[in-house]
Design a protein around this nucleic acid. Structure first.
Lengths: 143, 143
DNA sequence: CTTGCTGCAAACAGTTTGCAGAACT
DNA sequence: AGTTCTGCAAACTGTTTGCAGCAAG
């Protein structure tokens, strides 16, 4: 699965005439090995620990490439940082965000997806993507 | 309905020991008279046109009060600005966001809300709020 | 008179950009 | 060699904060 993504990016890079560089490889490796919802800063710091030479601008630039390449998606939670999540082929998951401990639980619901399509159709809208976030308290934080 | 909101804010202000100031009145008036999804900057500029003395910091501060008071809700779209929308008593609407012309169409779907509650319950999660945004192209932009 | 509120400007945080040198092809 | 990519630092953008003066209670 990680290999698939690497291949996907490489294909994208070739088709766009982009070069394959050490930095992009490293950033892709780290991105693929992180948990969901990394912020750029988080990823940058993690990388910097073992690869001090890398600049944060490169991480910003490269993550945008991943989005273009269809490997990642930008998500905005309420913490002032842009986060990126992995895109798994075809599927889309939504989030339960705990405002107590910032935990993020993922879920998927086919019926909701279906309803969204209906709504979009009703408004003559062509869906490209969507985002559903539910805020509240998780089991542990409810007490 | 505008009166209700003014009353609601005034009640909130009293209960919190906040003062009633000319600026807060003005900002509330302008906020109530705007379309949905104003950004702070937009609101600030609109106010400044007729009330040049007002600083943007005050607008920022005041909008946060409105959120606390339950009159407004912060929403994050993908344009790098924090926007605020009106909260109508009880109801919650979601958004179809057109990536072509930035139009925002609102909708409401009870079934989706219900499903969200089920999902939350299944995860032991207590919902406080949620946000659903569907991105795509509106009728006009599909062409 | 006391305390909170405001406007201003400076400070901040996250992100983007210009540029000279390094690295890919 | 030619061109893209990188790292650095400076620039930007949206937002927050410190503070002296102003105004509400």
């Amino acid at each position: 699965m990680i290999l698939e993504k690497k291949k996907a990016f490489s294909t994208f890079a070739v088709s766009k005439g982009l070069r394959s560089t050490r930095q992009r490889d490293i950033i892709l490796d780290f991105f693929l090995s992180t948990h969901q919802h990394v912020s750029v800063e988080e990823l940058y710091l993690k990388i910097k620990a073992t690869h001090p030479g890398i600049g944060n601008a490169t991480v910003y630039r490269t993550l945008k490439l991943f989005v273009e390449a269809g490997l990642a998606r930008e998500i905005l939670l309420h913490d002032g940082q842009t986060r990126y999540e992995h895109i798994m082929a075809g599927e889309h998951h939504d989030h339960l965000v705990c405002t107590g401990c910032n935990a993020i639980i993922e879920f998927e619901d086919e019926t909701i997806e279906k309803l969204q399509n209906e709504i979009a159709t009703r408004h003559g809208f062509m869906i490209r993507s969507h985002k559903l976030e539910i805020y509240g308290l998780c089991v542990n934080c409810r007490k």
